[in-house]
Design a protein around this nucleic acid. Sequence first.
DNA 1: CTGAAAGCGCTTACAG
DNA 2: CTGAAAGCGCTTACAG
Lengths: 340, 340
Amino acid sequence: MIVTIKDVAKKANVAPSTVSRVIANSPRISEKTKKKVREVMEELGYHPNFQARSLAAKSTQAIGVIMPNSAYYAFQNPFFPEVLRGISTSAHDNKYGIYLSTGSTEDEIYNEVTSMVLGRRVDGVILLYSRINDKTMNFLQSSNFPFVVVGRPDEHDERISYVDNDNIFITKQVTNYLIDLGHQNIAFVGGSTDFVVTVDRLNGYKLALKDAGISFKKEYMVFEDFIKENGRKAIESLMNLNDPPTALVTQDDLIAYEMISHLEDMGIRVPQDISIVSFNNLMLSEHSKPPLTSIDICIYQLGFEATKCLLEKISIPDTLPKRITIPTKFIERKSCEQKK
Amino acid sequence: MIVTIKDVAKKANVAPSTVSRVIANSPRISEKTKKKVREVMEELGYHPNFQARSLAAKSTQAIGVIMPNSAYYAFQNPFFPEVLRGISTSAHDNKYGIYLSTGSTEDEIYNEVTSMVLGRRVDGVILLYSRINDKTMNFLQSSNFPFVVVGRPDEHDERISYVDNDNIFITKQVTNYLIDLGHQNIAFVGGSTDFVVTVDRLNGYKLALKDAGISFKKEYMVFEDFIKENGRKAIESLMNLNDPPTALVTQDDLIAYEMISHLEDMGIRVPQDISIVSFNNLMLSEHSKPPLTSIDICIYQLGFEATKCLLEKISIPDTLPKRITIPTKFIERKSCEQKK
DNA sequence: CTGAAAGCGCTTACAG
DNA sequence: CTGAAAGCGCTTACAG
C-alpha cells in the first residue's frame, strides 16, 4: 500500500498538518518534532505525492521545455541535448522537474503548450526558439504565464524575458573578419527565415557589408528550405554565379559540413578556394577537415540562464522582464584564408 | 479565475460527475448531454486540471525518460534528440506527456528516478541506457513499476521489457566485413565498458575474430575513458604498436570522426592506410571525409517502439516482458578498403 | 509550536 | 442515462 501523510502522522502521534510542515521544513515546528517525524517517514518509506502536493499548493515544481518542430534544420543537431543539459542542471538545483514538449507541427506545439499551461502541468515555460509571429509565444504572453525565450522575441521584446546571444553584432564581426581577409564576395547560408535568429544574423551580415561599402547581393543568400530539399544544388547554384562567393557565413556547423562536402566534390577546396565561418562550435568542429572556424554561442549557458530567469519569475511574479545576453567566443581554426 | 468542472456543471445544469464523464467521453452519457456540456466547456474556456485528474484517477498520463549522465561519451551526441523524437511521437499519439530526467551523476539519476516513481510523477519509465549492475534499474525492477529499457539489461533480461538492436550479431557482421576485405589486425574502439552496449559489441567483435581464426589482442581495445582523456594519445598508442591495426571498429560516428582527424594528423590515411567502420549513421556521416561506412541503428524506432511497449505495459499491467529487436542497416560508404 | 477543518479539482463506485 | 457523496493525498488559513 501507499504510505501517506496520515500514516506517518498516526505513527508519530502528530497531526497530518504537522507532517506536512515537516516536509516543507517549516521553522514553526520544533526540532524535536521534526526529528521524530522524519524518523517515522524513513521507517515507513514515505514519499510525498507530487500530484496531491501540486493540487493543494497550486505549484507543480515543474517547468515546460518547448522544442521547435522537427522541421527545424537538423533535429540531429547537438544544440538540443546541450541546452537541455543547461536547463536541467539549473532546474534540478532548484528541485524543479522538466516536462518536455516536442510537437512535430506548429499546431501540435501550440496545442501541447496550451494544455500544459491551462491544465497546470507546469509552473512556467521555456521556449527553445523564437519564430516570427509565433502563436505559441503570443498565447504565452497574453495568458500572462511565466515564460522565457531562448532567442530574441520577434515582437514586444521589451515585455518578454529572454536569453540570447547578440546575434546581429557577432555576425557583423564574423563578416568583418572575412572582409579583413580580403573577401568581398561573401555569401550567407542560413536556416529558415521563420526564425528570428536567422533574421538577426542576416542583418548583422548586411550591416558589415554596408559598413565596408560592399553592395549586398540577393543571389548570395541561401536558406534552409532550399538546402534541405537539395543541399548540393543549393551550393552549386551559388558557385555557378558569374561572380561566385569566395567566402561563406554559415549558420550552423552541421550545414557547414554539408557545404564543405559538396564543395570538395565539385573540386573547390576549403579554405584555399573558399573560406567558411560558422556557428555553434560543435565538438566535432575541432576534428573536421579543415577544422572549422566557428562561433561558440555557449549553448549550455543559454539553457542555464534561461532556467534561472524563469525560476525567478515563478517565485517572484512581478519580476520585470529582462534580456540576458550570453557572450560568445570566436574560435579561429583553419577554414578561412586570406583571399588570393 | 480558474474554470472548474463545477462551473461547467452549474452552467450546463448537470452534475459535476456528468461533466467528468463527458471529458472521459463515457458511452454512458447521451449525445445530447455531451453536446450541451461541450458547448459550455467551450464557452467558459474550460481546461481540465491535470493534477486533480491524476490524483483522483491515479494516473498521470506522463512517462519518465531517463537519460544517462553526461559523462557518457558525447552528450552532444545526436542520439538523444533522435530517440526523444521517436518517444515523443509515440507518446503524443497516445496523449502522454514526457517527463525528462537528466542527472549528472549516477546518484542524482537514482534520486530523480526514485522520487519520480515513488512520488507518482509518472506512470512508467523509459531508461535510455543499460549499464552493468545499475542501481536505478534494480530499483525499477524491484519496485515493480512499469518500465522499459532502450538497450539490453545486464541481468534478468528475461524479466524486463527492452528494445535493442542485435548488437552482438551486427558487430560480428561488421567485423566480418573487414575480415573479408583482408584485414587481420582489427582494433575495437568503444564507449565505456560500464554500458552493456559496449560489452555486446565487443563480444560480437571477438566472435568474428574467433570464427576467422584470428587471435584476439588486448592491445587492440581502446575504451572511452582513455579516449576522453586524450583521444590523440589513444589512437597513437594503437598505431605505435609493433603490429598496428589496419582496420577499426568504432562504436560511434562521433568517435570515428575524432579518430580520423588524429590519424590524418599523423599522416595515416583513411581508407588507404586504415579502414574504419562505425555505428549510428549520423546525418553527417554522409558528408564527412571520407564518407563513413556506418551501421544505421534506427534510433528513432528504438524510441518509438520502447514507448509503445511501455504504454502497453501501463494499460495492461500483466503484460509479459518482451524483447523487441530493431533491425539495423549497413550503410556502406567509403571509409573501408581492401587490405593491400 | 501544534491541531482540526476546509479545500485544491477531479473520478468513481453506488444508487436510482 | 444521471446524480450525490466520498475520496485521492496533500496544504494552509484559523485558532489556540
